[in-house]
Nucleic acid binder design. Structure first.
Lengths: 195, 195
DNA sequence: CCATATTCCTGCATACTGTGCAATATTTGC
DNA sequence: GCAAATATTGCACAGTATGCAGGAATATGG
């Protein structure tokens, strides 16, 4: 076994707390849920709850899947057209999100009504975007260009999830295709006669 | 006089509270400042502080300048190339921000370290972006395209402020020019061979 | 298998946040 | 001025979050 019993227990407890938080939040809104309730539902003391997460909003968000390192290196070492490599990169990330679709949906629900949770996720996404920008700089050799591209990418993920949450019978990856179409069209219009 | 004494007092008090909040936050970080201190510095009771703002993070952010209605209609009724009209739109908004540059700087400072504040601003920006998307839809007749464009615009504002805060001797509008250059370049690369 | 070191969980004390309510003070319109 | 409307304030109270210290569970080494 690669991880100790202690390690596994810790991860299990963290997940228990997150699930308990999300389920209670789904029932009556995160603001109406007390940390005491969450702790009880997760089978730990209030004090332990705060050993795992600094507040209930963080508990709801948990640790979202980061951009994978392989995907990032594939992107910056890719030799296809940029838009195609970027799309492949986003496809991979969306696929990772699909694994946890139910949690994504519950988290999205919390984000809609809770500002603090948005801020926490936003901080996470900013860090992700920054790291993607750095990697992209290796490929395109231009900081501002890389920043613009990685902004487009991160924005695309966000809008994809939003579209998916608000549509019936639309997979995450189908939603991405729609969003991506809009981005390509926007790029064309922006690039048109911009010399 | 267009506004009553009461109205003016209210606005003055709101501003007093915001300034007090930002100054105390600049000294020792918003997290280390209590609402009691802020209220005392602004010359009101703690209870009154909460009549004006729901929490200290909102007090720090205050009410950021929204996209102006004239600028929005100018944008969607414009007949120049899209990238040019969009740039003009952003120029106008950045000019508005320049009026309050010191406050923008202090707010930026808070945003860097406070997640809750980021979430609050994020909510505000989401609403702004959505309204811009609607207006743009009138011009480009395509929801996803409009959403992508308004995402680029809002992102540009954010990155402009960031660049400006981290550079010596760079005006907000000069920062926007640099960011904009990156966006145009990104659009070109994305549009290249995307048929 | 036991001893003990390490890590984790918990209860308790405490400071701060945010809201409802009722009393008090201020402004407004007449 | 005076009554109605609106703002401010103090107080009570529930919830959030952290430090600390003792006890429980797990890991390690013989």
């Amino acid at each position: 076994m690669t991880v100790s019993l202690r390690e596994r227990r810790k991860q299990q407890t963290a997940r228990d707390i997150q699930i308990a938080t999300l389920e209670l939040a789904a029932q009556k809104g995160l603001d109406q849920v007390t940390t005491e309730e969450i702790a009880a539902a997760a089978g730990v003391s209030t004090r332990t709850f705060f050993n795992y997460f600094v507040n209930k909003e963080s508990a709801a968000i948990g640790t979202p899947p980061p951009y994978s390192d392989e995907d990032k290196t594939a992107l910056c070492e890719g030799n296809g057209p940029l838009h195609q490599d970027l799309k492949a990169f986003l496809n991979a990330h969306i696929k990772a999100l699909t694994e946890d679709a139910p949690v994504v949906r519950l988290v999205g629900n919390v984000l809609r009504s809770n500002e603090k949770a948005r801020g926490i996720l936003d901080g996470f996404l900013m860090a992700e975007r920054e790291s993607l920008t750095e990697d992209l700089t290796a490929r395109v050799k231009n900081k501002q260009l890389a920043a613009a591209l990685s902004g487009m990418a991160t924005d695309a993920i966000g809008r994809t999830i939003f579209l998916w949450e608000h549509s019936e019978n639309l997979s995450l990856s189908a939603a991405l295709d729609i969003i991506w179409e809009g981005i390509l069209e926007a790029s064309k219009q922006m690039a048109a006669s911009s010399e």
